[in-house]
Design a binder for these strands. Sequence first.
RNA 1: GCCCUGGUAGCUCAACUGGACAGAGCACCUGCCUUCUAAGCAGGGGGUUCCAGGUUCAAGUCCUGGCCAGGGUACCA
Length: 544
Amino acid sequence: MINKVMKILIKTLQKLEIPVPEHILVERSRTSEHGHFATNLAMVLTKVLRKNPMIIAEEIVNAIEPEEDFIQKVEVKKPGFINFFLTENTLQNVVLNVLERNENFGKSELGKGKKVQVEFVSANPTGPLTVGHGRQAVLGDCIARILEWNGYEVEREYYYNDAGRQMRILGLSTYHRYKQILGSQDPMPEDYYQGEYIRDIAQKIAEEQGDKYINDPDNDIFKNSAEKAVFEDIEATLRNLDIHFDRYYNERTLYEDGRIEKVLEDFKKIDAIYEKDGAIWFKGTEFGVDTDRVLWKSVINEATYRLPDIAYHRTKFERGYDKIIDVFGADHHATYPDVLAGLKALNYETNRINVIIHQFVTLTRGGEKVKMSTRKANFVTLDELADIVGKDVVRYFFIMRNANSHLDFDLELAVTEGDENPVFYLQYATARISSIFRKADKLGIDYQKAIDLSVLVTVEELNLMYTLAEFGEVVETCEKSLEPQQIANYLQKLATAFHKFYSECVVISSDEKITHARLLLAKATRIVLVNGLQMLGVSAPEKM
RNA sequence: GCCCUGGUAGCUCAACUGGACAGAGCACCUGCCUUCUAAGCAGGGGGUUCCAGGUUCAAGUCCUGGCCAGGGUACCA
């Protein structure tokens, strides 16, 4: 609908021989007083035409050719807005359109033929995922879903490193517990991982291997067993939230197939690195960042995270993605400019990379802050949270806010499961509709028989249909903004429109014509709700 | 010090990315269930959009300078 309004405007401008601005804004009017759609076109043209916006608006409106049965009227208001009012027929046709396209209603083709990769979570396997990881997991997954809805071919990737210092400590922590299980009294060093999961892993090793490794703290069995167990746990957690990765990419392979070295060689060729104090530095200042950074440490003979990150992102370019999306927590904020600078130096189109930074989740318990650390094991795991409130609530809660905002998650509130939860409001709408159809089926109503939607004319019905049509617009907006919270906001709006309709308009009545039409409208509404919830990975129950 | 991100109703947040009168939920009042689910609907109170300037037809939104909060600023990731 919105595209059709846009086309009409462009056609009219061409007819008047007015140059068409590169970006015409047509938006949904905020209040019904202003019609269904509005444009600021006349005001934008003021500068070009050097005329009063009201006059321009009038000229445009007078030149608009009446489009069969699409627009009811066009108005000019105060500073120069042009407001479009659609006919009832236009709105009623939305229902037919939804029913026809069904589970595909709302899909766009903006990304047709394009490949995109979304990297997210990427937590090293040192322990269970925390609530903090949860936000990123759900955000990344929803972004991937948004892109799928826009026709992209999407790959979800999890990048990790099992070779660093953290992982060494993980192995040692496991060894230490193992030793304790076999009778050692040595207390656990403070900087070791204290979590209960370490004890379980050690227990298993002790049971299967006995005391074979009692004097061998560096044996790979500790680190490897821990890594395996932790990863299984992480994957299970993600599975519980309906999150699935296409690939787990291990940093180590970058070393194994020589990509790390290759980056250094190529940097050398273009004179982007130099040696100082025995370390290798990247000339960041020559490639757009504030300072030069170390790529290879001299103190311990190994790379900083920057080098493998550059090599890793290089593979993303080599793998031919049209769009590359990195989802990071705010703590990683400082890391990516250097990586981008490095890639730019290597002549890659870094504008294909889209970095999404989300702020932290602060966990509170009855208003009191809960500090979290994997090491100290005083965190609440994502699994525990999902057990308490359920997948739908977890997912919805994490994406209902803008990624840039801090997220307060009150555990006590989540546990009470009260009306506080906006997810229920949405799901309630789907359940109500299902309930209507249970009754319709019981009565054997054949609402598909003679379709006549012209009887849908109440304020609530028209508004509901108008809102249904918005779904596609929202999906397309999200293709650029990558903000799942816009889907959530839209669904709230749709649910409200439905609940209002529900309370004002009795669906199944003695009037057969109205009953049939309203059933079709309810069906269309359920389709859009389900589609939208599917984009968020939230279920649409038939009963509550 | 410098760099990011926030600051909107008592609380938690929206606001179509510069549009018209800043909107929801919770909380607080008042109504509505013998009819498809009251986890709902209708109505009410509640605002200097942190402060001060600026840009323009138009600023919560953009620019400059403050104040507050969080994150970053390593040869940690």
